[in-house]
Write a protein that binds this DNA or RNA. Structure first.
Lengths: 218, 218
DNA sequence: GTCATTTATTGACTCGCGTTCATTTATAGG
DNA sequence: CCTATAAATGAACGCGAGTCAATAAATGAC
């Protein structure tokens, strides 16, 4: 009988509705002003119902983060389907990351939330935590793969193992993307304006410098 | 009469005591578990008294952040007193930044707090906000100066204006430092271990790559 | 269709914490 | 001393996360 399965599907659908609501509030109000009551209201359920689908507020936000990391990984996978040089793939990954943050600021802030969680012992019990971490690891693996391909095809020099270069690329692009995010979403952050720099200039300069550092001399 | 001045000194001393208390709690419990009651307790005053010296919790944390940014700037200024090549100064700034985060994680988390504040409209009224922002701008200027010196003395190539390179250096080192911070302070963040990388290796690789990108060809 | 049982939903309640304020206490000047 | 001003206090408030006993809905047996 398909009753049990239908129930599971139904439950998943409701959970998804709640995540949609949470996402839209995250987008318009930001993490600080995301309240469970607002989410319940927007999802047209009671506050108590939320807690049937999510263990707590962290779990809810990590539910969004799960979507976020998954989407980013899908985008990265698309890049790796191309057969361009590894160096070009790396550049494309960076570009995707930047655009991703621009297009989905609510996803980016949920990922920041994940980063901050690892501190306070644990995230106060959330099943999504492990899933998010796995997704992040997969994202990292995709970066490693791009770089490894670059080393193999000779477009990236092999001064460092692929994993180390990937971590470096991860860290630095994280920093650049953060600045870019602040520029776009924080009213009072006008550093780029002050030095008369366009946003894509920042990215291009980053890629230029990085390129000088990792590209094989041809 | 020196009564008025003594009162001002006295007030500043108390404020400082409260900040000390807040700092130590921030260090041992982290931002999430920093409560005004705890701070009041540790500073041996009532909760209400805190609000005579700080406008609200944000203001208190930004008070710490003011110390944090000031200390970092002092460290940077020390570097600039040397007359080594600009490129070496930049490297030294990066190293200082990294060690700073290692030695004063509570300061670093207060700076993260400042970064996150700029979102929610404003930081909910805090006189320290402006001061912190000014300090950050001064820190940036110090980076610009190091790079400009490098361009002038020929150790850094002049593909980009100093401000743009500084922003790039700022962003990327921010990213690297963040990873480093997570590695040290977050129990479950074991990315470095997983790929068998030492922390100083990450920094050295960063500087190597960056060096290739910005050093003048000699 | 009816009923018993399991499952889902609800909103009033608790609780912690940031913030306020009327009251009390300390200090300064005359 | 006495009055006026400033500082300190902790009870009280509001808001939002999380809980739970009561209620409603769905399911399966007959």
């Amino acid at each position: 009988m398909g009753v049990a399965e239908r129930k599971i599907r139904e439950k998943e659908r409701k959970r998804s509705t709640m995540l949609d609501a949470a996402e839209s509030i995250l987008l318009e109000k930001g993490l600080d002003h995301l309240s469970m009551e607002d989410v319940a209201g927007k999802a047209e359920v009671s506050k108590g119902s939320l807690y049937q689908y999510f263990q707590n507020k962290n779990d809810l936000v990590l539910g969004i983060c799960y979507r976020a990391t998954h989407l980013l990984n899908e985008s990265f996978k698309e890049v790796l389907e191309s057969n361009r040089s590894g160096l070009m793939l790396v550049r494309e990954l960076g570009e995707r990351y930047l655009n991703y943050v621009k297009d989905h600021p609510q996803y980016y802030s949920s990922m920041k939330f994940l980063d901050n969680l690892h501190s306070s012992g644990v995230g106060g019990e959330s099943d999504y935590l492990e899933l998010c971490t796995q997704n992040r690891q997969e994202g990292f693996r995709l970066m490693v793969e791009a770089i490894q391909r670059g080393i193999d095809d000779g477009s990236i020099k092999n001064d460092f193992p692929a994993e180390q270069l990937a971590l470096l690329f991860w860290s630095t692009s994280h920093g650049v993307v953060t600045i870019s995010y602040m520029h776009q979403n924080y009213e009072h952050f006008k550093l780029l304006e002050r030095i008369g720099m366009q946003e894509n200039e920042l990215f291009n300069a980053y890629m230029h410098i990085l390129g000088c550092g990792i590209a094989a001399n041809t």
